[in-house]
């Protein structure tokens, strides 16, 4: 299962980066979202994979997974929403102000 998760993280990263390298703002926003997923999943995986062991204290529990990466990722998910929202409004601002949704200004890519 670890290999599958690793491939998923890699795929999310690759797709996200490819979208970021397109020269328009909307693919850039989507690409950033994909990279956020990848990073969150990576952070989460740093606690190693452990199905069926939620970190809810219970006398009957067989054990617990590492709660710390989860707490980290939880806040990261919320913060990435904030970040995405700011980038969206910046993209809209650029679009309204300049009538252009290119992410490249000036030079050639």
């Amino acid at each position: 299962m670890e290999a599958l998760i690793a491939i998923a993280i890699g795929m999310l990263t690759a797709s996200g980066l490819y979208l970021i390298l397109r020269q328009r703002t909307f693919p850039l926003i989507l690409g950033l979202s994909l990279i956020s997923y990848a990073v969150n999943l990576f952070l989460f995986a740093s606690g190693r994979l452990a199905p069926g062991l939620p970190p809810i204290i219970d006398k009957a529990a067989a054990g617990y997974t590492d709660p710390l990466p989860q707490a980290l990722v939880l806040t990261a998910i919320v913060i990435s929403f904030g970040m995405t929202a700011v980038i969206v409004i910046m993209a809209l601002g650029a679009w309204f102000a300049g009538g252009d949704d290119r992410s490249d200004t000036g030079g050639e890519g």
């Binding site: 993280i9 999310l12 990263t13 390298l21 190693r48």
Partner: peptide, 28 residues
């Protein structure tokens, strides 16, 4: 772009795999 993205993705996947297949270096 595809080459760049794919190689970076591959590197990240390898890194994730390496991380998950090893026990933590220090006790969590």
């Amino acid at each position: 772009d595809l080459t760049l993205a794919a190689s970076a993705g591959l590197a990240i996947a390898a890194l994730s795999y390496a991380l998950m297949t090893r026990a933590p270096a220090f006790a969590p």
